[in-house]
Design a protein around this nucleic acid. Structure first.
Lengths: 215, 215
DNA sequence: GTAGTAATTATACAGTTGCACAATTAGCCA
DNA sequence: TGGCTAATTGTGCAACTGTATAATTACTAC
């Protein structure tokens, strides 16, 4: 009766890393970041705690990697819809961008919870702050491009300074609605945030995005 | 050479509680919530760890109290400015409300960092979730009242359903700008967020809030 | 003054945390 | 088939965590 040792399989280093990141994200989303200990992540990933130290240079490195992954997922899910709206009008593309950001999986309690869990560490500088700044810039630049196209299409091209202000404002609306929807999901109707988002941004830009979105 | 015991003063129970809450808030703002241990809070409050257990029923209770205090501070700082704008037009009062929420001390890295630190725990239910829901409702209801007055004043009174949508949207703009300003303060000019906020909400409601605010 | 009492300190404890390190093993290549 | 190597495990440790509790002390009322 020798103490039976765990039998294990080697999956590639990349897969192993991904599994650990996925485990960390799942735990943060479900139980909060304070529950995301090395041991808990290891157990969820079906692995021994020591192995995490083998793939990541300490817990902070795993946290950073998980944050980068999550933000990358969100950005890809939001900006990646451009492919589906290639032939349509600029207004329709902008409307679809907004709608995508305000409906699952982008807008969801889980996504907001994850983001919020990381936020504490973002503020303390280091890699996570850079990731945040880069993600924000990418998202807003993308939005600014869509706004520029839509205004040009409407025969009202705008100067760069105005475009910047519009992008900041539209981004704020989307962020705010995304946040509130994720924090208090039961406080809003199914389609409500999307409609409000389209209506608000439309009013700010002088475009009828609701009509553009329904086509 | 007996081991010298710390000499201490008794301040009232209320003052002691406040000192502990203040210490907790300071630590969360400066070093993140993971640094807010009982021992750290005690040291900052100039007190022994055991005393915290004497005034609060566990660490969670202190955390809840600190969160409630912070949100109360923010709400009071934002809504409390009504007194100064009593005689003015409804549009001016709405404009001042928005401007107050987008400039220090309400809009600041410290305030956002604090809020973000608590967010993780808000998601896990309990007292802190109730505090969040109540704060959000209070803020939005206040905003909705200001919007109703401003629209009525402009000769365009709105139905309740429309007011609700307007309040959600305006609240989202303010929240989004507040958040971004706190997370990336160096990315925006001194007055920029206020101007964008007034312009955006004005466009959404069909009012010239920038002009109303300058008077 | 001086007792009484609530506030405050000091200490101890059991559990948890991140991590380092040696021992083991799975899969690959000759 | 039989090593070789890197992936993986198991264990241990020192530091830290929240909290309970007994011992002390500052203040108040008389």
């Amino acid at each position: 009766m020798t103490p039976e040792r765990k039998i294990f399989r080697r999956i590639g280093p990349d897969l192993r890393r991904e599994a650990m990141i996925a485990a960390m994200l799942a735990i943060i989303a479900e139980e909060g970041i304070s529950a995301a200990t090395i041991r808990a992540v290891a157990a969820r990933a079906g692995v021994t705690p020591g192995l995490i130290g083998h793939y990541f240079d300490g817990k902070d490195a795993l946290l950073s990697a998980a944050y980068a992954q999550h933000m990358s997922d969100l950005t890809r899910a939001t900006c990646g819809q451009d492919a589906h709206t290639q032939g349509q009008s600029a207004a329709a593309r902008l409307a679809e961008f907004i709608a995508t950001g305000l409906r699952p999986p982008v807008a969801s309690t889980q996504a907001v919870t994850l983001w919020a869990g990381f936020l504490t560490y973002v503020q303390q500088g280091g890699r996570m702050r850079d990731t945040h700044a880069a993600t924000y810039a990418e998202f807003r630049d993308h939005l600014q491009g869509l706004i520029a196209d839509a205004l040009t299409e409407a025969g009202r091209p705008a100067a760069t300074a105005d475009l910047r202000r519009h992008a900041i404002a539209c981004n704020a609306v989307i962020d705010g609605l995304w946040l509130e929807g994720g924090l208090l999901p039961e406080a809003f109707g199914a389609d409500e945030l999307t409609q409000i988002g389209l209506g608000s941004v439309g009013a700010m830009l002088g475009l009828d995005l609701t009509a553009a979105h329904e086509k």
